[in-house]
């Protein structure tokens, strides 16, 4: 077997293993879907009225792409916690003692987590449709919108993979990633328009890749108002391109680093 084919076949085996867990632990799915629903309802009805939007925009339409982005980026932290758990339970030792591809455990993990993200984004989109979110673009654009969201989350999964392998305690991985993910998803155009930010924070938010992801989704789902001001920053004028640059950058750095961390991973 060529090494590419071997890596692929091993990755399929590991992906299958990870998805079986999803099937056996229904709580995983329940919480992966309940929390997005909660976020949609919370922001839509609690904050919705209080947030100033550009003229011609409904908060339902503005909000959903932001919720999509935040939820699936948070969903990617699962990757780190799951790998840390595998390490603790000695499974990574077992895998490392097998004549299998050195990257398959990580590929299988990140792909399975992308699968979970697809489920939660589907649930969120359906909930969104109920509370007034609409797709006002072509099918092609809408699909691209979801692809951009999922690609960015996939890249974050690889970052989290490295964190999980280095930190080695699932609870710590969760706490550590919240500290990073919350500011990243809140200091952005996720829930409020950037015009409301103080200037330093605003510059950060404009160049924050999460803002570009959200902006891409809004553009591609047709959730922006023609009356809204054109963004000042290049990153938000070309959000899809800017997002893809980040995706490539994150993968280029963290795929090799995570594989390296895996090769050296010491169990207990």
């Amino acid at each position: 077997m060529s090494s590419m084919a071997a890596t692929l076949s091993d990755s399929v085996v590991i992906t299958k293993r990870n998805l079986i867990k999803v099937k056996r632990v229904p709580d995983l799915i329940v919480f992966a879907t309940l929390s997005p629903i909660m976020f949609v309802l919370l922001f839509r009805y609690v904050f919705g009225g209080a947030i100033q939007l550009p003229p011609g925009t409904s908060y339902g339409e503005f909000l959903l792409p932001g919720i999509f982005a935040q939820t699936i980026v948070l969903g990617s932290t699962t990757t780190g916690a799951s790998l840390a758990e595998d390490l603790q339970k000695g499974l990574i030792d077992r895998f490392r003692s097998l004549p299998m591809s050195r990257s398959a455990v990580l590929i299988g993990r990140t792909v399975a987590d992308a699968g979970l993200n697809i489920i939660s984004i589907t649930v969120m989109a359906l909930t969104g449709l109920v509370v007034g979110w609409r797709i006002n673009s072509s099918v092609g654009e809408a699909v691209l919108g979801f692809v951009v969201l999922l690609l960015f989350a996939y890249a974050i999964s690889w970052l989290m993979a490295m964190v999980g392998l280095l930190v080695r305690t699932p609870e710590v991985v969760n706490n550590a990633s919240f500290i990073v993910i919350f500011p990243l998803t809140f200091v952005a155009n996720t829930f409020v328009p950037l015009e409301t930010f103080p200037s330093v924070l605003r510059t950060f938010a404009e160049w924050n890749p999460v803002s570009a992801v959200v902006q891409s989704a809004r553009n591609l789902f047709g959730n922006t108002s023609p009356l809204a001001p054109t963004p000042d920053a290049w990153s938000l004028q070309n959000p899809v391109l800017y997002t893809l640059i980040w995706v490539v950058l994150i993968l280029a750095v963290f795929v090799p680093l995570s594989v390296r961390a895996y090769r050296r991973a010491a169990g207990r």
Partner: peptide, 19 residues
């Protein structure tokens, strides 16, 4: 090639609980 020729059982049963 070493890995293909050996089996390892570690100190703690490394089985996937969900499978």
């Amino acid at each position: 090639r070493v890995r293909a020729a050996i089996g390892l059982t570690g100190q703690y049963a490394a089985v996937d609980e969900y499978l």
